[in-house]
Amino acid sequence: MTSSPTPGSNDPDPLVIAGRSLASRLVLGTGGATSHASLEAAVRASGTDLVTVAMRRVPQGGAGGLLDVLDRCEVALLPNTAGCRTAREALLTARLAREALGTSWVKLEVVADDRTLLPDVVELVDAAEQLVRDGFVVLPYTTDDPVVSRRLVDVGCAAVMPLGSPIGSGLGIRNPHAIELVRDAVDVPVILDAGIGTASDAALAMELGCDAVLLASAVTRAEDPASMAGAMRHAVIAGRLAHRAGRIPVRRLALASSPVAGRVGS
């Protein structure tokens, strides 16, 4: 029998991606925070050790110290290719990120349109293949389609990140069955990405067998981001523990937990 994982530095159940061990199974997106102070409080409360950033043209005078904030929090950076519509754009963005931030890890996003922000999986697989060949550790944001996930792993992706529902929607996991199928289809970490609204969504992702959860808006746009970040931290830990603990089967009718024998009056 395996011992229960406990959160902390001696966690016997770390998340391992491309040979790198992460203590937290929560990846925090930094988009949507209203201030650096609010972001810093949320990052600290979340317990995460990996956060996403976007790559954008520098405004005149500089970008305002985001990297200093994240340095202080001692978190690793996962640059994304948000906003890219084609493999060509995603490749340039990923290479700029590698040059700017000194990391070969990339959250690969290639989306089809602004209304849904759904992944364009044809461009996605093409971009993933080229980036892997170029030495990147590729974590693709993808649909909840197990076949696409298998294709992404076939071309060398280090993890797959299926959506629960559209980015920023807070609709949660609309097709839990599909997420389970993705989990069964690949042998790399599955990170539920996009759509998380509240803590129970994150716990469900982990109970379904996901290895981690990536979320941004649910925390950064909450009324109290730091409190929600704390809630997400505990939800991910709880969901993981529940997944590993082996839940009881679902039954249609009651099964008494008190002894049947010896009832008074029987």
């Binding site: 988009g31 790559m55 954008r56 640059p79 700029l96 931030l101």
Partner: peptide, 10 residues
């Protein structure tokens, strides 16, 4: 010429 850096983003 494009000069880019890290910004907040999901």
């Amino acid at each position: 010429v494009d000069v880019v850096t890290a910004m907040q983003g999901g």
